[in-house]
């Protein structure tokens, strides 16, 4: 359960929101507060007012995997393997277990061939994949993806979607500008101007967005 009460932080203003779904898509125009909300939910930022509870706990007490849209700003290590290994190493997991986890995560995300690569030599999309492998490597309870699919092609994005579905995380909060991706979620939250304008199943939310460009292209073409 994701529970938000009286949240006010920068532009974000959410009086009350309870979401009991696993895969939650957060959508909305640029500058609507999606990243701010995801930063609070991931524990990166403390809200000025109000509370967020994930699985009944404050975000800082939850094991979270987070991927931002600009992996260049967040990748810490120069080799892909070391980047992916960072959270098990920071948690002092044994070397063998760390190695197994890194290889398993790289396999799921489809990047075993990049493990020895220098991060600086990777393409934008490949960096996003390394960041994603680093986020899932230590089995997070909640996985938060902030437009991580923005630099991925169709085939790669589909593979990521499948990997995310398989992950053991109790919640996946996925902010995306691909409405066709959002349409696959269990629950959709549409934000505008810092507020939640619509929330519900994809059918409920996209029905109210039918007149806008936020309507999924595959729904539009099949009508």
């Amino acid at each position: 359960m994701i529970r938000i009460v009286n949240l006010r932080h920068r532009i974000v203003d959410i009086p009350d929101l309870a979401v009991d779904a696993r895969h939650v898509a957060v959508i909305g125009p640029n500058g609507s507060g999606k990243t701010t909300l995801l930063s609070i939910c991931s524990g990166i930022e403390e809200p000025r007012r109000g509370t967020v509870r994930l699985l009944g706990r404050a975000p800082a007490a939850v094991k979270i995997g987070w991927v931002g849209e600009f992996p260049d700003r967040t990748l810490l290590f120069s080799r892909a393997y070391d980047e992916i290994a960072s959270s098990p190493r920071f948690r002092h997991r044994p070397c063998l277990e760390t190695d197994e986890r890194v290889r398993a995560a790289a396999g799921t995300i489809g990047i075993p061939h990049l493990l020895d690569a220098k991060v600086s030599a990777l393409s934008g999309g490949e960096k996003a994949l390394v960041a994603l492998a680093a986020a899932v490597v230590d089995d997070p309870e909640v996985l938060i993806l902030d437009e991580a699919d923005s630099h991925l092609d169709g085939g790669t994005a589909a593979r990521i979607q499948a990997a995310v579905k398989k992950s053991t995380a109790a919640h996946v909060l996925w902010c995306t500008q691909s409405m066709d991706t959002a349409a696959e979620a269990d629950y959709v939250v549409f934000m505008a101007g810092g507020a939640v304008r619509h929330h519900g199943t994809p059918e409920e939310v996209f029905t109210s967005l039918e007149e806008t460009c936020f309507y999924p292209t595959m729904w539009r073409i099949r009508r």
Binding site: G28, P29, N30, E69, G124, E147, S150, H151, Q177, M179, T212, C213, F214
Partner: peptide, 13 residues
């Protein structure tokens, strides 16, 4: 190079 990434659908249009 990827002019549409990061943009919402209105800005993409």
């Amino acid at each position: 190079d990827e002019p549409f990434s990061s943009l919402d659908c209105a800005a993409k249009q």
